[in-house]
Write a protein that binds this DNA or RNA. Structure first.
Lengths: 110, 110
DNA sequence: GCAGTATATGTCAAATCAGACATGTTCGCA
DNA sequence: TGCGAACATGTCTGATTTGACATATACTGC
């Protein structure tokens, strides 16, 4: 299974087994998961741009390194709320946030 | 206390007592709460534009009328996740969502 | 007045998400 | 090779958010 697809399903809260599972998400669910992935990527980008470690970010937002790692990996246990709060804490403006939300994922090479 | 201010504090999870409480939010907290208010307003606008009752929206998103009411009133118990899922279900596109996020609140008459 | 419909508000148990911690992996460097 | 730093992953317990329900309020037409 393609990595992006896997990430989407997992972000939606599903576990991918060894069998060829297939679950169709509604259009809205796909949009929501895509958005979460955009936010997730942006957290990593913002953090790197500011040359901070996950531990340093964790301290800023009053959380832990593992939760920051989960944010960046698109773990389904992370809410949009938390990622947005994190981005804002990292100095992202509302209009930058808007760009992140609207951003279509550029297809990455698998 | 101004209504908008009250809404912000409440949306941030604080109860306003009778005494002249004052809690200063950080810049990021204010931005986050503003954003939630924008989303909240948008849920109501979108629903009305589609001429749906709260009960009908609740059914669409698999929730209850009371939760939709809370979304629209900016209740602090409502997450950004839920409001975004709702907006997407109501046909909002990601780029429209982006506009909502970036939107500065126009000052309402108190 | 009284129904009926729409929305608001408060509460609760169950589900989800949180921070914390342990531990595993990966990388660079001496 | 071994060490240390950064990051990933799994899992606890507690906090927050959830849908559901009861109930209140507001407005309509009769």
């Amino acid at each position: 299974m393609k990595k992006a697809k896997k990430a989407k399903l997992e972000a939606a809260g599903w576990k991918i087994g060894s069998a060829e599972d297939f679950l169709d998400l509604t259009k809205e669910e796909v949009a929501f998961v895509d958005m979460k992935i955009s936010l997730s990527d942006s957290v990593r980008e913002k953090r790197r741009a500011k040359r901070l470690t996950q531990t340093q970010v964790a301290k800023k937002i009053g959380s832990s390194q593992s939760r920051v790692a989960k944010m960046e990996s698109g773990d389904p246990s992370v809410s949009v709320d938390l990622m947005m709060k994190t981005l804002l804490t990292l100095g992202t403006t509302r209009s930058e946030l808007a760009k992140i939300i609207s951003k279509r994922k550029s297809r990455r090479a698998a």
